[in-house]
Design a protein around this nucleic acid. Structure first.
Length: 197
DNA sequence: GTTCTAGAAC
DNA sequence: GTTCTAGAAC
């Protein structure tokens, strides 16, 4: 089941191939049949291309909303819909498992996306301190917090979190708070919590 | 966001 | 000598 490649379509006499910037990659993923899980008029649900846990999905609006800063009160209903879609897919695919629904305080990839991710963090794609801290510190902002902020302030502003500092924090187990010296040790450590969950 | 790899850390 | 991380990528 190899997927069809289409990278040579710009070869030949036509204008030179101009590669899209990596930060726009989610827009391609949103139309990739291999990644799409569910879809409706408002959102697309895809599998994260580099999942950081056994179950890791992204819920993205079809509307061109770049990031959290672009949100205003008119988007509240959309955010609630995104939340429900995340909840639904994770319960359907990974029913009974612990999971979180949230946004990265500062996302690398364009197009607003909700992470729906189980808390096993059992994945070979989870490699760096930045990965870890982006899902286990306050850098990961619960969807409900975002919605509440939008309702109360009419906008989302997370500057108070000092996001870039959060990513440099010491490695700490998300279950028992035990500090770990490096990523391999952390990954070995969290395996002992799997039975608990 | 990932890949690659130099050089730090062990 | 091997493991691990952090920074460049035109």
């Amino acid at each position: 089941m190899s997927k069809i490649k289409r990278k040579h379509e710009d070869e030949g006499q036509s204008k030179p191939y101009k590669k899209k910037h990596w930060s726009l990659g989610l827009l391609d993923s949103m139309t990739d049949p291999d990644l799409i899980v569910e879809e409706d008029d408002l959102v697309t649900v895809i599998k994260d291309k580099y999942p950081k846990a056994k179950f890791h999905y992204l819920v993205l609006p079809k509307e061109n909303i770049t990031n959290l800063k672009r949100l205003n009160t008119s988007n509240i209903e959309l955010l609630k819909h995104i939340h429900i879609c995340g909840e639904k897919i994770i319960k359907k695919a990974a029913g009974g498992r612990n999971f979180r629904l949230g946004y990265h305080a500062v996302a690398s990839m364009s197009r607003l996306h909700l992470h729906a991710i189980t808390q096993d963090f059992d994945s070979s794609c989870l490699k760096t301190k930045k990965h870890w801290n982006s899902f286990t510190t306050k850098f990961f902002v619960d969807s409900k917090v975002i919605i509440k902020q939008l309702e109360e302030n009419g906008k989302v502003d997370l500057a108070y979190l000092n996001p870039s500092e959060l990513l440099k924090a010491e490695l700490k187990c998300h279950v028992c708070d035990m500090k770990q010296g490096n990523m391999p040790k952390l990954k070995a450590h969290i395996k002992q919590h799997v039975q608990d969950a």
